[in-house]
Design a binder for these strands. Structure first.
Length: 825
RNA sequence: GGGCAAGUGGUGGAAUGGCAUACACGCAGGACUUAAAAUCCUGUGGCUGCAAGGCCGUGAGGGUUCGACUCCCUCCUUGCCCACCA
């Protein structure tokens, strides 16, 4: 029976059915085995699986199967991140129910995943749009509400007046709505937030525990959390004495602060400008800025604009009067919404001061340019130096002055040392239908009342008319909106916004531990056994949001007493993207390759092998059709070797009867076992596969003799190892061959991973490379345990080497046993 | 502007500071075949040479070392992330 396209389909589908029917990958808590939780980021079900999924899930599957064969109790679950906008868009466009559309997509997706032969425990499958799942979203939300971690606040957000909805910054394109191009405005809205900032310190500190995460993900999270140590200094408004706290990381430059700038939204602005000469013009300026969308304002491209308020502040360092300005480059969301401007030592302030002819004073001496004058400056001096024009702090190094001046202010009450975070609270309200309803009720007498636990879930009403015209679709559904207040029984209304879908995906890995649990968010005991996740695999695009939110949720569950650990994911592997013709494969670019087509022609095994062999998992992968062909050829060679040469024999291999050729093959087999085990453990799948290819090349060259029992059994031994070693990569063909050669286990996954014997790795002879002055000049085959003296004699007397040494004296002789000689002359 | 990666044959990519280019793709030649496909074998960094061989060669330049793709410094290029962040 040849390994043809038709046969491949038959074999692969046969084993997929058997694995499914016998529930080979179903696992339960088992204290007798070490556990291993292997997880991939669950997909958004938008239709068929694509190459990105194939790559992500193949990597994870290799790890899972490898660990299974090594005797671990492996949890490897799959589910769907099923709420979200695409379902709603499909509903608008095609007039179908988002639920129907989503469950259709899930069916397609499941089919695709099963056709790849992934080792999932399908009994744990979940979809976040199942009410059994989102019920617990609501439960978690209420727990957070009870602890003050979920709260409502009015804040300025991007708003599309035509669609009547809030937009994320990413949804604003060139100042307009991504859907209708209407200019986006800022609007104050009352929205639900999660107080992730309460966990800033822990989220930052615990990054230190994540020594098996890629350093760049750690760096991105650090940046995002953005802890900055500095000082808050109180400037005061002249005459009224109103304080203007400013945040600065450069307290050392305080004596050079020659003006103060407030954000246009700063609460003090209104009071300050009341009655000043140009009040109307200033108000117009503020109006103009506030009409700009955040993304335009933050772009940093445009020129910095500002106006003078006509008022002055007192610099607490030297009691000088300095003007107060309003400018668009100061943001209310960061720091205190006000800055002290030091144009001589901050480039942004410098440009602004030049533009508006504001005063400057040099307070740090540039060691390269001691007598610099303000009039000579072409740009701010941001380097290190010694303080000048700074009263009692003159002569101190500026880096030391940061702390000293901060302490001085702390003492005299003009400021304090403080920490600022870049991390903002998380806005989770969405004016959408296809998401988890926020389980809150508004009552005129009782205020905001959470839905009692016994009434959860608050179900999404079906048959809602989704028009896409904006606003929460749920608010048009009277049956949904009107309720009795759970507290006083009077008429009340429900919250009609739904949760951002990142909420759903922040804890699904905990739910997998007991995904069918009806009583609790998850079973503490089962989560205690399986968690934390030992290996998480997914795209780098989730480096910040999803991973940060999941870490936040885990810490919250720890505080609730549900888990005992701080971090959910011990190891993280971020797989690279799949490219075609140098660009990321994507539907919008139209450069996708359909995995189904490849499977149809070559099978899932060849696809898996080719994608693993083409590049290390973290690197980008350039898709190449020819590579699948190569993978298939390799599998075919193995198939043919077994078909033609494998024959069961009873005799055990007797080492004494081995000739040199046998010993070589045995050594190569054991060294391949060693190398492949090490490579898979460190996720170097491409080199693991190349080692298998090298071993097969050796088997091809091996002087096989079907009438020689010793050679037959050595061949058998080697091929058994090959099948086992290859099985995590290409499980179907290996399962088939494993049974073809008469193995007893019901599945190869239950066979033990092969081990090597150190004894067989040893060589008698070694090839030693000889260099003269670091250049390769010869090679010798010598006994491995040859002494330095002996090799020196051999090397120096060799003619080929001699001609490079001649009569020059040997200055140094370096010998790496069994490897290399370097003669320095 | 800040941070993090990465730069090696025609291509994807290998190399605990020790033989640069493993393995594979592609290409060329050969065997088998009436022929083709498939399969198998051989060759395949550049320059030079009939050959043996020699010289050069891992983005550029410097340094450390007996020895550098690998470590250090400077620069260039590309990719990703963050950013009017005070």
């Amino acid at each position: 029976m040849p390994y043809t396209t038709k046969e491949i389909q038959k074999i692969e589908e046969k084993w997929q059915k058997i694995w499914d029917k016998k529930k080979i990958f179903k696992v339960d808590v088992n204290d007798k085995k070490p556990k291993y939780y292997c997880l991939e980021m669950f997909p958004y079900p938008s239709g068929k699986i694509h190459m990105g999924h194939v790559r992500n899930y193949t990597i994870t599957d290799v790890i899972a199967r490898f660990k299974m064969m090594q005797g671990f109790n492996v949890l490897h679950p799959m589910g769907y991140d099923a709420f979200g906008q695409p379902a709603e868009n499909a509903a608008i466009k095609r007039k179908i129910d988002p639920a129907e559309w989503t469950y259709d997509c899930i069916d397609q997706m499941r089919k695709g995943l099963k056709r790849m032969g992934f080792s999932y425990d399908w009994d744990r499958e979940l979809a976040t749009c199942d009410k059994d799942y989102y019920k617990w979203n609501q439960w978690i939300f209420i727990k957070m509400f009870e602890r003050g971690l979920a709260y409502k606040k009015t804040s300025s957000v991007n708003w599309c007046p035509s669609c009547e909805t809030t937009l994320a910054n990413e949804e604003v394109l060139a100042g307009g709505c991504w859907r209708c191009q209407t200019p986006v405005v800022q609007k104050d809205l009352d929205q639900w937030y999660l107080k992730i900032t309460e966990y800033s310190e822990r989220l930052l500190e615990d990054l230190k525990q994540l020594s098996f995460w890629p350093s760049r993900v750690i760096a991105m999270q650090e940046n995002w959390i953005g802890k900055s140590m500095g000082a808050e200094i109180y400037f005061r408004v002249k005459d009224t004495d109103d304080p203007i706290p400013v945040f600065t990381t450069r307290a050392d430059t305080i004596f050079g602060a020659t003006y103060v700038v407030l954000a246009p939204e700063h609460p003090l602005v209104d009071k300050l400008i009341k009655g000043v000469k140009h009040e109307e013009a200033i108000r117009q300026f503020i109006q103009k800025i506030s009409n700009q969308s955040k993304s335009v304002r933050i772009s940093g491209e445009q020129k910095k604009e500002g106006v003078f308020t006509g008022r002055y502040a007192i610099n607490p360092a030297n009691n000088k009067e300095i003007p107060i300005w309003i400018a668009d480059y100061v943001l209310m969301e960061y720091g205190t919404g006000a800055i002290m401007a030091v144009p001589t030592h901050d480039q942004r302030d410098f440009l602004f001061a030049k533009e508006h002819a504001l005063p400057m004073e040099i307070v740090i001496e540039d060691p390269q340019n001691l007598d610099r004058k303000v009039s000579d400056m072409k740009e701010a001096f941001e380097g290190e130096g010694v303080l000048i024009n700074s009263a009692q702090f003159n002569g101190i190094k500026n880096i030391d002055a940061i702390e000293k001046i901060g302490a001085w202010f702390q003492e005299n009450g003009n400021g304090k040392m403080t920490v600022h975070w870049r991390l903002r609270d998380w806005l989770i309200s969405r004016q959408r239908y296809w998401g988890t309803p926020i389980p809150m009720i508004y009552c005129e007498t009782c205020g905001i009342v959470p839905v009692p636990e016994k009434n959860l879930p608050v179900e999404l009403p079906p048959d809602i008319d989704i028009t896409g015209e904006g606003g929460s679709p749920l608010r048009k559904c009277a049956d949904f909106v009107n309720v009795k207040c759970p507290s006083c029984g009077k008429k009340a209304t429900r919250e009609t916004d739904t949760m951002a879908t990142f909420f759903d995906s922040s804890w699904y890995y905990l739910r997998y531990c007991s995904s069918k649990n009806k009583k609790e968010v998850f079973d503490k005991k089962e989560a205690g056994y399986w968690m934390p996740v030992d290996q998480y695999v997914g795209g780098i695009e989730h480096a910040i949001l999803h991973l940060l939110y999941s870490r936040f949720f885990t810490k919250f569950f720890k505080d609730l007493g549900f888990v005992t650990f701080d971090e959910p994911f011990v190891r993280l592997l971020t797989q690279g993207m799949v490219l075609k013709d140098g660009e990321v494969m994507s539907k919008s670019r139209g450069n996708t390759v359909d995995p189904d087509e490849v499977i149809k022609n070559y099978g899932a095994d060849a696809l898996r092998l080719c994608i693993l062999f083409a590049a290390p998992p973290e690197d980008q992968l350039e898709w190449n059709d020819g590579a699948v062909d190569g993978a298939w050829k390799f599998l075919n060679r193995i198939w043919n070797l077994i078909e033609k040469q494998y024959k069961v024999v009873n005799e055990n291999i007797a080492f004494q009867e081995f000739d040199e050729d046998d010993k070589n093959l045995q050594r190569e087999c054991h060294s391949a076992i060693k190398k492949i085990t090490e490579d898979i453990s460190s996720y170097k799948f491409n080199t693991a596969i190349s080692s298998l290819m090298i071993l097969i090349n050796s088997v091809d060259k091996y002087k096989f003799d079907k009438n020689n029992v010793v050679k037959q059994s050595l061949f058998n031994f080697t091929m058994r190892a090959v099948i086992l070693l290859l099985s995590p990569f290409t499980p179907h063909i290996c399962e088939e061959l494993w049974h073809k050669i008469g193995s007893k286990e019901e599945t190869i996954v239950k066979a033990a991973w092969p081990t090597y014997n150190e004894v067989y790795l040893k060589k008698d002879m070694a090839e030693v490379v000889v260099q003269v002055n670091g250049k390769l000049r010869g090679k010798f085959s010598v006994a491995v345990d040859i002494s330095e003296e002996e090799i020196k004699k051999i090397a120096l007397s060799d003619e080929g080497i001699q001609k490079w040494i001649l009569d020059k004296p040997v200055k140094k002789f370096i010998y790496l046993p069994g490897k290399l000689v370097n003669i320095v002359v």
